[in-house]
Nucleic acid binder design. Structure first.
Lengths: 131, 131
DNA sequence: CTTGACTCTTTAGCCGACTACGGACTTAAG
DNA sequence: CTTAAGTCCGTAGTCGGCTAAAGAGTCAAG
């Protein structure tokens, strides 16, 4: 069984343009074509596309996903793990940043009554504090 | 005392180009010019730029910062608070997303020995799982 | 057979926030 | 006075990941 690009898109919940974009980027291999020039995707294309989408949801960039796909086709487990660990660290850094931002925003909104004029508003005052 | 654009940039730890960009965007008012055409910033320009940078670090977009600056110059505290609360929610959503990503990445990296061939690597297997 | 949905390619645009470039002029330090 | 550093302006490029549009050809249902 083969998929048209539209069927494949539906199966992976992406857009057609996205699939063609992945092809241009080298993430999806060029599929065989029908006589008309239409792409005819074999079964494993869906699997590959799912891999890409799932990796993306975990925060991997398309370049990183490229690397993962190449390693999947023949690489060392250590290399895969290294990429995942690097991503984990990256996400933890972003979490730390966001948690700090949240703390400040929480503090600001709690201290602001939400009534009256802007003069003396704790939020504005906090934003005006240098450092 | 006045600042040249370079001095102002240094004071707020930004680039000169950034300041001119903020001017084009309407975040920084157009300063008076010397006879040569050079920008001469009054003292309060530094304050305003600090406000912008600090807001940015908290996750506000330049458009949101525009709104905050306008409210600062004459608005209701409720409007300020609404913007801050919206940003807080946005950040909490992003935190939730990242925490889910972290959990999956942690699980994957812990289950992967990091030794041997890719075949059977838990990370790859997880990425291949549909849904 | 018709018609509407699908697909093709190439090229360009979008988001946000800068950042760079080039060529000319001005200022500050020595 | 010299010279290096600063500044001017306008335009265009960057990053990542799509997304759109135009215009033509193709497929599937009725």
């Amino acid at each position: 069984m083969t998929y048209s690009i539209g069927q494949l898109a539906k199966a992976a919940d992406t857009g057609i343009e996205t699939i063609r974009y992945y092809e241009r980027r080298g993430l999806m291999p060029e599929p065989p074509r029908a006589a008309s020039g239409y792409r005819r995707y074999p079964d494993d294309a869906a699997q590959r596309l799912h891999f890409i989408r799932r990796s993306k949801r975990l925060g991997f960039t398309l370049d990183e996903i490229s690397a993962l796909l190449q390693l999947q086709a023949g690489g060392q487990r250590a290399d895969i793990k290294a990429i995942a660990e690097a991503k984990l660290e990256e996400i933890e850094t972003r979490l730390d940043d966001l948690q700090r931002m949240r703390a400040t925003l929480q503090d600001m909104t709690q201290r602001c009554s939400g009534h009256g004029p802007v003069a003396g508003c704790p939020i504005i005052e906090t934003l005006n504090d240098n450092e």
